[in-house]
């Protein structure tokens, strides 16, 4: 059975697209045929993060409007042949996405793909609503920072009342916390909310912590999902997250600061 995962947060800039690209690549690398969809109509960026921006011919809205077939619009990833990207449209028409149209496309994708990752736009407008509406699982990307935590809680409220599963009284969406841009050093100094703090406030199952890392910018600069940078801490964190999601038992990492005085002088990249 195919599963639809929404990557959402409410707040912008917390790492939704980075996360969508990384986990979609991770799932595909594990041998599961995966599609990743950009729901940010008007401000598409997933194509850039995935490094396929020059191969976009047709987009999500073209398929909904019947101007292209799904197969024409899906872009096969250059690093992994089990991964496909459906880019967002750059149209400024806010109503380009319809619930019916999105539902149809997801139904069609479900026949062929094991996982469908929906990269939600920020906010709680139509695009964000449609990205989460059909979801089976939700990855809540949160930064250890007050506005992000608050917005995540708001998204949880929306997931539990406005999603298809909620409306049809089905088993609720499974919600997972991904805490990103985490700095164990700052937590130690009392300058940043800890994993435990955020979990206590949101009462969510923790799927993983992604440390603040230079490798994330390096990855987006070059258009390769950070999970492919297997030496980087963020890449490893995402690999762990994918493994945990698939049911593997991986102890949590990157929660405690890794370096003593020695490490500070001979620090990692």
């Amino acid at each position: 059975m195919a599963r639809i995962i929404v990557v959402t947060s409410g707040k912008g800039g917390v790492g939704k697209t980075t996360t969508s690209a990384a986990i979609a690549m991770g799932l595909a690398k594990k041998g599961h045929k995966t599609a990743v969809i950009d729901f940010d109509v008007g401000l598409r960026n997933l194509d850039l993060i995935m490094g396929c921006e020059r191969r976009v011919v047709y987009d999500f809205v073209n398929v909904i409007n019947g101007e292209a077939t799904l197969n024409q619009a899906l872009i096969r990833d250059k690093n992994c042949n089990l991964l496909y990207i459906l880019p967002a449209s750059q149209t400024r028409d806010k109503d380009a996405l319809s619930q019916e149209g999105v539902g149809k496309i997801l139904d069609e994708l479900k026949k062929d793909f094991k996982y469908i990752v929906c990269d939600s736009p920020a906010g709680i407008e139509k695009g964000a609503h449609l990205a989460m509406y059909f979801a089976d699982d939700a990855f809540i990307v949160t930064n250890p920072e007050v506005s992000s935590v608050r917005d995540s809680d708001r998204m949880l409220g929306i997931l539990s009342s406005k999603s298809r599963r909620a409306e049809q009284n089905e088993e609720p969406i499974r919600e997972y916390l991904l805490l990103s841009r985490y700095s164990p050093d700052r937590v130690k100094l009392g300058e940043m909310l800890s994993v435990d703090d955020v979990q206590e406030i949101l009462s969510l199952h923790l799927l993983g912590v992604i440390p603040e890392s230079k490798s994330v910018l390096n990855a987006s600069n070059s258009g390769t999902p950070v999970i492919l940078d297997e030496k980087s801490d963020a890449g490893q964190a995402y690999a762990d997250i994918v493994a945990r999601y698939l049911g593997e038992d991986k102890p949590h990492r990157f929660i405690d600061e890794k370096k003593g005085l020695f490490g500070k002088f001979f620090g990692s990249k």
């Binding site: 920072e145 007050v146 935590v149 608050r150 809680d153 937590v187 009392g190 300058e191 940043m192 909310l193 800890s194 703090d197 206590e200 406030i201 949101l202």
Partner: peptide
Amino acid sequence: ASLAKERLQILV
């Protein structure tokens, strides 16, 4: 951080 936690708990 503890200030942030306290404020968030009340707000949430």
